[in-house]
Amino acid sequence: MSTEALRLVWVYPDLLSTYGDRGNLLIMARRADLRGLPVECHEVRSDQPVPTGGDIYLIGGGEDGPQALAAQRLIADGGFQGAARRGAVIFAVCAGYQLLGSSFFAKGARCTGLELMDLQSDRGETRAVGELAGPIDPALGLPPLTGFENHGGRTHLGPGAKPLVTVQVGVGNDGRTEGAWAGNMLGTYAHGPALARNPAIADLLIKWATGETLEPLDDTWPDKLRNERLTAIGTR
């Protein structure tokens, strides 16, 4: 770990921040800060180069047009992929999650993805809209996922990507699994935002980036929220 500040890079908020994605940045920064870790947040607009020296990169959800545009600009820029290849932590949501794969569908056409994770996305017959929940891969040692999904895509994982969640409620990737992780990259369809409802994921990502064991925080309100959501959909 560097002795400098933890550098959080939020990629393309002008294109990919349709579902309160700023929340994931704010929550990650807050949880690091409360542990006494100095934090620097960088918001990189789509007309700026993506810095390669970040510790954690966040990329969020967006509409079809902006998603396709984001893919073109990221491919042309190369900074994000460079950071991912040298092992930076990547947290991707919804459209941003699809971008990590080899291809995705936007506006009726197949688009080339960033080819960072072994997955590809196409269109489902129906739009997946509603609560999304299920147990997270035990290898990660996290409590169940709770979130809200709203997407038309279906994501197919190759052998190089592990499913993040076994779906209990909702659709996620294909009705059976939701999200994916591989190395230091983690993607999900969950809004909420995801880290508001699943602060343990934020802590895992900070741990991946810093290698440090984090002391627990007072999560009274996030716990109440999680409990309420999981109770409302009958998984608790």
Binding site: Y19, G20, D21, V129, A196
Partner: peptide, 9 residues
């Protein structure tokens, strides 16, 4: 709307 994520906007 059922998605409260907008609270962070």
């Amino acid at each position: 709307g059922h998605d409260t994520s907008w609270l962070y906007d």
